[in-house]
């Protein structure tokens, strides 16, 4: 823990070696988050780059070093949302209405590789992609998402419902393709 604090102090003092060490420690996991919120590798790298610049610039504001991982994750997610914000408004999310959500259907993600699942998320429409990530993986409630994106709670729910059905469809297709490949 002491070593960890030394590392943070080094980063605050703009010691490039300490900054690189912190980057190496968190970048792989954060890169995955960036991928989940972006459509391409280039976008994900841009988000990661911008996130770490913000992280290094604001480290001195971090009050408790024990929260570092959560703090870094929050910055990365916010940067990703900012990055996509312009596009979100160009392609606005609307309330689809009459949502029918079912929560008991079984899923088997273990049949799929990580990169396949990631591609499924990336292939979602941007609004659905962002809301799916925030709700299903990050654990935000629809109310929080609505506040964060300044949309209505209903829009968040309907977009999520759409994301969910699209993903199920893709999972089904993937499973069929895999079975097909096996059969062949």
């Amino acid at each position: 823990m002491e070593e960890f604090e030394q590392l943070i102090k080094g980063c605050i003092k703009e010691d490039r070696k300490a900054q690189k060490k912190l980057y190496d420690l968190f970048a792989p996991r954060m890169m995955m988050i960036c991928f989940r919120y972006s459509k391409s590798t280039m976008e994900a790298e841009d988000i990661l780059q911008e996130s770490f610049i913000k992280i290094f610039g604001n480290l001195k504001k971090l009050r408790e070093t024990s929260n570092l991982a959560a703090w870094i994750k929050r910055i990365v997610i916010n940067t990703a949302l900012n990055y996509q914000r312009g596009k979100l408004y160009l392609y606005p999310m609307v309330d689809i209405g009459n949502i029918h959500l079912s929560y008991d259907e079984p899923v088997a993600l273990s049949d799929f590789r990580q990169d396949e699942l990631l591609t499924m998320i990336q292939d979602l429409p941007l609004g659905c992609q962002v809301i799916f990530n925030l709700f299903a993986i990050e654990g935000y409630s629809h109310k929080e998402i609505a506040e964060k994106l300044e949309i209505s709670e209903g829009t968040s729910k309907s977009q999520y419902s759409r994301a969910r059905s699209l993903l199920k469809q893709k999972l089904e297709e993937g499973r069929n393709n895999n079975y097909g490949e096996v059969r062949q």
Partner: peptide, 12 residues
């Protein structure tokens, strides 16, 4: 989905 991506990593 959450569990699947909880510790997922990609090296930049």
């Amino acid at each position: 989905w959450k569990d699947h991506f909880a510790k997922a990593e990609i090296k930049p």
